[in-house]
C-alpha cells in the first residue's frame, strides 16, 4: 500500500535540476550521496548546507566542492547549532532590511548517524525544541563510516563493525521516535530507492515552518560489504523486508507511506552483506535470525494496528 501522491506521479515529474556536480571523492555507489542529490533537487536553489564531521565532510575538499549551493563545515557535535547561528543571522538581516529577500537561504543540516544519534544530539534536540526553521538530513549508514566503520548508536542488532567484530548485541537507537517526541512539525524516513516518496515528503514539508527532519537509510557498499552495483538492490530489500519502514510524522501523527503487502524474509537483506555474514557462516545462527525477523514482524503488527491498515503477510 502506497499513500496517494500529491505532487509527483512519476519519475518524469521530479525536478531535473542538479545541485551537485560529479567529481566528489565519496565511495562509488554511496547511498547517502544519492539521497542528498535527490533531496536537493526538490529543495531547489538557495540552500546552505551545515555539515557535521562524517563521510559527507569529504564532499568538499579544498579547493573543490561539488555543491553549487553554500556549505559550512562545523564540527561533529554542533551542526544544528551552526544552523541556528546561520538562520538567526539571516532572519536578523531580513528584519533589519540589511539583506534583500532574494538573498535568503534555506538551512540544511547534513549529518551522519554518528553525529545524529550521538555527539550532535544535544544540539539538535535543542534546535528542535526551539522550533528552529531548518532542514535536517541524517544519512544513516549505521556506523562511523568515515573512520572505517566502527559501531555507532545506529548500528543494528547483530551487525559486525570494526569495533563489534562478532556482531553487536545493542539494538539500533530509535532516533525517529526521539525526534518525534520533540513534536517538530515534520519527521520522515526516506530511501534513495524511493525517489518519489522522498520528493513527496520534502515537498510536503516545504510548507511548514520549523524543524523538518529526514532520516535516510544510506546504503554503504564499503562498510556493509557488498558490491556497489547492488546499492539500489540492498536499499530495495531494506524496504521490502520491512527493515526500513517508510513513514512520516506530521505534527506528531505517524503514518506509513508504504506498507508492503507481504514482507520478504529479512535473511534476503542480511545475507548479501558482509556485516551480517557471521550469522550465516561458518554456522547458521538460526535463533538470532529468527529473533531479528520477529522484531520486524512485531513492528509491522503494531503499524497495522495503529494505522488501521491491512497487516502485511509476515515472513
Amino acid at each position: 500500500m502506497k499513500v496517494k501522491r500529491e505532487f509527483y506521479r512519476s519519475f518524469k515529474d521530479l525536478p531535473s535540476e542538479e545541485y551537485l556536480s560529479p567529481g566528489s571523492p565519496l565511495c562509488a555507489g554511496c547511498g547517502g550521496l544519492t539521497t542528498l542529490r535527490q533531496m536537493h533537487k526538490v529543495l531547489g536553489d538557495n540552500v546552505v548546507i551545515v555539515d557535521a564531521a562524517g563521510c559527507m565532510t569529504l564532499l568538499a575538499i579544498y579547493p573543490f566542492t561539488p555543491l553549487r549551493s553554500s556549505w559550512l563545515y562545523t564540527t561533529m557535535g554542533s551542526p544544528s547549532a551552526g544552523a541556528q547561528g546561520l538562520r538567526d543571522a539571516l532572519d536578523v538581516l531580513l528584519a533589519k532590511h540589511r539583506m534583500s529577500a532574494d538573498d535568503n537561504l534555506q538551512v540544511l543540516v547534513l549529518a551522519g548517524d554518528g553525529s545524529t544519534y550521538g555527539m550532535g544530539l544535544s544540539a539538535t534536540s535543542a534546535a528542535i525544541h526551539r522550533g528552529l526553521d531548518f532542514w535536517y538530513l541524517c544519512y544513516d549508514n549505521e556506523a562511523y563510516g568515515n573512520t572505517g566503520f566502527q559501531l555507532s548508536e545506529a548500528s543494528p542488532f547483530g551487525s559486525a563493525t570494526a569495533t563489534s567484530p562478532q556482531g553487536t548485541q545493542q539494538t539500533k537507537k530509535n532516533i525517529f521516535e526521539i525526534w518525534r517526541a520533540h513534536q517538530p512539525p515534520y519527521v520522515a524516513t526516506v530511501s534513495a530507492h524511493e525517489p518519489i516518496d522522498l520528493a513527496e515528503k520534502v515537498r510536503r514539508a516545504m510548507t511548514m515552518t520549523g524543524p523538518k527532519l529526514f532520516l535516510a537509510l544510506a546504503v554503504c557498499p564499503t562498510g556493509w560489504g557488498f558490491d556497489p552495483a547492488l546499492s539500489d538492490e540492498i536499499a530495495r530489500l531494506a524496504i521490502e523486508t520491512g527493515v526500513w519502514p517508510l513513514k512520516e510524522a506530521i505534527a506528531g501523527q505517524v503514518r506509513h507511506t508504504y506498507i508492503p503487502r507481504r514482507l520478504r524474509p529479512v535473511r534476503e537483506y542480511l545475507k548479501l552483506q558482509r556485516r551480517f555474514r557471521h550469522l550465516f557462516q561458518p554456522t547458521l545462527w538460526g535463533e538470532t535470525l529468527t529473533y531479528i525477523q520477529e522484531q520486524v514482524n512485531i513492528y509491522w503488527q503494531s503499524v497495522a494496528k495503529a494505522e488501521g491498515a491491512k497487516q502485511p503477510t509476515l515472513a
Partner: peptide, 13 residues
C-alpha cells in the same frame, strides 16, 4: 572558503 561552488567537476573521478 571556496567561491567557485560546483567546481568539483574539474576533478575527474
Amino acid at each position: 572558503s571556496i567561491l567557485n561552488t560546483g567546481n568539483a567537476e574539474q576533478r575527474q573521478t
